[in-house]
Design a protein around this nucleic acid. Structure first.
Lengths: 116, 116
DNA sequence: TACTATACTTAGCAATACTAAATGCCTAGC
DNA sequence: GCTAGGCATTTAGTATTGCTAAGTATAGTA
């Protein structure tokens, strides 16, 4: 990212979206990166150094749980994350807060329109 | 604020809204705090320690300019901030980025709806 | 062999909102 | 006159989170 402003807008949002994705379906780091990129029209192209710390935080908070998955016929493995009950609750809570928040900001701009 | 998540959502947004308010009309710190509170349905209740650093940053970047105003018949004065041309340009740029950004996030949630 | 894709880890930096406290002027009530 | 509270600004220190950048390792392919 080259724009400092947009970088700040992402604070909190990226973690919210990662949690949401895992709630929809158990997933793992590398896959989440491609999903986020695709589902955001290339807007959220996370590097590993951004995504993995998010996963560790979510796990520390008990919102997701990890388990190692041996891939068929290989020794390399993936760390599959699944949402916990607390994670699903928190995902809904954050979605609601995001909606209220973004509507407040939108309304703020609209209030300024009918000025003379 | 007691909620860490919502605190993060504000990153970047508060500065954007302060710049927008000053673009609409020259103002000063103490007044901006009450305006922000009122125009956001009590959602953005900034403490001084949050607002004043925002003003100093905007001034450092040349987006707003300050001038001391003697109040009539008093010695105490207010620091009036006015938007510069660069500030007006930047305000429009940020509003556009915010709109695109929030629409991307909204679309992200809607994409998840028509699943089974 | 070398390159690419997959997959995870970690150290250190930058930006911004928060708490908390301090300063000073002015007005109103006692 | 004195005190409490509203107006108005300043600043020190903390926490959170996204970023860059580098490193580790396996598997497939040219």
């Amino acid at each position: 990212m080259e724009d400092r402003f947009e970088q700040q807008l992402k604070k909190g949002v990226l973690e919210m979206l990662v949690l949401e994705l895992i709630c929809r379906q158990p997933s793992y780091g590398y896959k989440l990166i491609t999903q986020l990129k695709q589902m955001s029209q290339e807007r959220f192209q996370l590097k590993e150094g951004t995504l993995y710390p998010i996963l560790y935080r979510l796990e520390d908070e008990g919102l997701i749980a990890a388990s190692w998955s041996q891939r068929e016929g290989r020794t390399a493995s993936k760390k599959i994350y699944t949402a916990t009950d607390a994670g699903r609750l928190e995902a809904r809570r954050r979605q609601q807060i995001w909606q209220d928040f973004s509507q407040t900001v939108t309304a703020f701009y609209q209030e300024g329109e009918h000025h003379d």
